[in-house]
């Protein structure tokens, strides 16, 4: 870890924490959002910790497992961290699906919180 840039350490720790919480008890994800956070989930928008957690908690599966294929992290001009994740997930007994997710992390009052979160399943209209 010592040689990795700080934004990469913060970003990869966040990613690990986020998917671990998501896969074990996603009602706990409220701790990473603030009231100004935005989530776009499959094109649908939610703003604020309460609305975001309600959406995540009400997703129609009981079991989910995420597996990360690749993750990238960059520092932004405003001292935030931009993270992009490519992975696969398995919900209940559905087939494995690819997904894309991006986050902006910002340090507010000495804690890193997620101000922006975008999620899409990797479903294309193959021609």
């Amino acid at each position: 870890m010592g040689d990795k840039p700080i934004w990469e350490q913060i970003g990869s720790s966040f990613v690990q924490h986020y998917y671990q919480l998501f896969d074990t008890d996603r009602t706990q994800l409220g701790s990473i959002y603030i009231d100004a956070s935005c989530l776009t989930w499959e094109g649908q928008q939610f703003q604020g910790k309460a609305a975001i957690v309600e959406k995540l908690s009400s997703l129609p599966f009981t079991k989910i497992a995420h597996s990360i294929t690749a993750q990238d992290h960059q520092p932004t001009p405003d001292s935030c961290i931009l993270s992009m994740v490519v992975g696969q997930l398995k919900a209940d007994d559905d087939p494995i699906m690819g997904f894309h997710q991006s986050f902006i992390l910002k340090n507010i009052n000495e804690a890193w919180v997620c101000t922006n979160d975008m999620f899409r399943l990797a479903i294309h209209n193959f021609g």
Partner: peptide, 21 residues
């Protein structure tokens, strides 16, 4: 482009995610 999403960020930037082929 299959799908694109855009957000305002706390620092007045625009965050954009694109999924495509």
């Amino acid at each position: 482009i299959t799908a694109q999403d855009h957000h305002p960020t706390p620092d007045s930037c625009v965050m954009t995610m694109v999924m495509g082929q």
